[in-house]
Design a protein around this nucleic acid. Structure first.
Length: 565
RNA sequence: CGGGGUGUAGCUCAGCCUGGUCAGAGCGCUUGCUUUGGGAGCAAGAGGCCCCCGGUUCGAAUCCGGGCACCCCGACCA
């Protein structure tokens, strides 16, 4: 490709709204242009990178034994109502109606449709196991698209689904997908670590996310430096510090004027936070829920939501707090009626906790579960934080930020039961198939590749995803020896199976070099009178900046070596 | 959905408080000439519903009200 013909506009300065390096470089290098919040147009160069990412994904999925299919992006809404997810997805689901007012949705993911397809093809255990995948556009009406390509409203996802006769063979399908993911991210140049993830209220067993550790990531990850345990903060397990041991003492009411927070209360009474009981109020599927947890701990809302098998959970608003008669700052489960009480084991097991007296500026000393109050549900709902002890080895956990690049998940029979994907076993008995699902966000991967591979001058593409393999910069192209050398070199590079971008523009050398750095193609070959005087072509490796001059005939071999071919 | 910020030329931004030669700069773009090893020079030019609607005023980019869009933080995110 000749750059004089290429549709590409690089920017000297990035638009003001771009903050992340990946976002700035995406725009500066002219890879994509925003159309609206969470929607991007890809230019020829950007699209080549997307296609190369997809190629890696296809190769590795195919290698793992998965089969590619293609499903509609437009789904009848009934299918989503059938699994209950039309409601569960809420406003995230893009809805529309056809001319006959039949309801449709733009697919935010494809468990339903893939299950439908599977139900038409799978009848016997002989048809299993099978893993199907597609690379398809997804639509999600996100509350907040952000970070360039990191969170989009329309994006491409590789989504795979495995179908097995049982949980044991699902393990094999899951492991195959897991291994494919390791290879995909390695080839694309995105360093990832697998972390344990929440499997959601919908059920399922193992779930892991592939996380690219980066300060700009949206997810909080807890890592154990001792044993390597890694988990999403919503999933992370830890050792809850032991309570202060004591025998139950008589309940006693104390005046605590103005003491509304745990920290204030503990210091006012000269006790430790873990000797108090924290009260938190939620609205869960429209109903009030009271949560009690030891004062030194925080509530993990995901765990709470799962424990309640709830669809929707949010902090209780002031109106509901008043309606429920709760006294914020002095609330407890002692004497509380009219709502579900959920307690963390930490609040149940500890003796003589200080808790609210449900009247302003008053607390109780020595509240004890079983005697003074009783939980309707006791569940592990404490949130792991940095510094907490690892559940495996006791070392203090560290917190890091990360970006979710992929997700592998043992779904089980949730969808096969609701959509009806069943098989007959050897005995002729009917069973739901056991499913797994595996997703990778393609554009987000592009963002992560840039985030992980750039320097102050621009992008430094990993060889496998670079839009072109070789960038020929021609200077003084009007001079005959240069014209001829460029043509010869271009031909030779292409004949060697490498893609090449030739900067044949009439611009000055400085512009060409700056653009070459910005575009970040791994190998730059400069053809100029000066290089020719020195004996040939200047070869520059983008990543290291190493430069040498080689004979024109050797340039191809040198380029191949840099590309690792 | 809460909090914060920003909307003026393709991009970066000034002008707004204090209404009136106030439609501006740099970069980019076009043309010509010169130039070709790190965003080069000279000259000439094109380009704006100052986000939108309404109000105040003799007069609004500027003041007031109401929208909308975009960005950031949070909430949310199979």
């Amino acid at each position: 490709m000749r750059m004089s013909k290429l549709l590409l506009k690089t920017l000297r300065e990035a638009p003001a709204e771009a903050e992340l390096p990946s976002h700035r470089l995406l725009l500066r290098a002219g890879l994509a242009t925003p159309l609206a919040a969470g929607l991007y147009c890809f230019s020829p160069v950007g699209w080549r990178v997307i296609r190369r990412i997809e190629t890696i994904i296809r190769e590795e999925m195919d290698r793992s034994g998965a089969q590619e299919v293609h499903l509609p992006a437009l789904h009848p809404i009934e299918l989503w109502e059938q699994t209950g997810r039309a409601e569960a997805m809420g406003q995230t689901l893009f809805r529309l109606a056809d001319r006959k007012e039949r309801g449709f949705a733009l697919g935010p993911t494809h468990e339903e449709v893939m299950s439908f397809l599977a139900s038409r093809s799978i009848q016997s255990y002989r048809d299993l196991p099978v893993t199907l995948y597609q690379i398809q556009t997804k639509f999600r009406d996100e509350a907040r698209p952000r970070g360039g390509l990191i969170r989009l409203r329309e994006f491409t996802m590789k989504d795979a689904y495995s179908f097995d006769t049982g949980w044991d063979t699902l393990d094999a399908s899951y492991d195959a997908a897991f291994a494919a993911y390791q290879r995909i991210f390695a080839r694309a140049g995105v360093p990832v670590i697998p972390v344990a993830a929440d499997s959601g209220a919908i059920g399922g067993k193992d779930s892991q996310e592939f996380i690219f550790l980066t300060e700009v990531g949206e997810d909080e990850i807890l890592l154990c430096p001792g044993c390597g345990y890694a988990a999403n903060a919503e999933k992370a397990e830890f050792r809850v510090p032991p309570p202060v041991a004591a025998d139950p003492a008589p309940l006693e009411k104390v005046s605590t004027p103005g003491q509304k927070t745990i920290a204030d209360l503990a210091s006012f009474l000269a006790i430790e936070p873990r000797q108090t009981c924290k009260a938190v109020f939620y609205r869960v599927d429209g109903k009030p829920v009271f949560v009690a947890i030891r004062g030194d701990l925080d509530v993990n809302e995901v765990k709470l939501k799962n424990a309640l098998k709830a669809k929707d959970l949010e902090p209780m608003d002031d109106a509901m707090v008043r309606a429920a008669g709760l006294v914020a700052g002095s609330a407890s489960a002692v004497g509380l009626r009219g709502m579900t009480i959920v307690a963390d084991p930490s609040a149940v097991e500890a003796a003589n906790l200080v808790a609210g007296a449900n009247e302003p500026d008053m607390h109780y000393r020595n509240t004890n579960h079983g005697r003074d109050w009783k939980a309707d549900l006791v569940a592990n709902i404490a949130l792991a934080r940095g510094g907490d002890e690892c559940a495996n080895c006791g070392a203090p956990l560290e917190t890091r930020r990360g970006m979710e690049m992929g997700h592998v998940f043992k779904l089980g029979t949730v969808y096969s039961e609701t959509i009806g994907v069943q098989y007959l076993d050897e005995a002729g008995e009917r069973h739901p198939v056991v499913m797994g699902c595996y997703g990778i966000g393609v554009e987000r991967m592009l963002a992560a590749i840039i985030e992980a591979n750039h320097d102050e001058n621009g992008i430094t593409w990993p060889a496998e995803v670079s839009p072109y393999d070789v960038h020929i910069v021609a200077l003084n192209l009007e001079q005959e020896p240069v014209t001829a050398a460029v043509a010869e070199l271009e031909k030779a590079v292409e004949a060697a199976g490498m893609s090449v971008l030739v900067d044949d523009r009439a611009d000055s050398a400085g512009i060409k070099f700056k653009d070459a750095d910005l575009l970040g193609i791994p190998v730059r070959l400069t053809v100029s009178p000066r290089a020719m005087e020195r004996g040939g072509v200047e070869v520059r490796e983008r990543h290291s900046g190493e430069t040498s001059v080689v004979a024109l005939a050797e340039a191809v071999a040198k380029a191949k070596a840099i590309l690792g071919r």
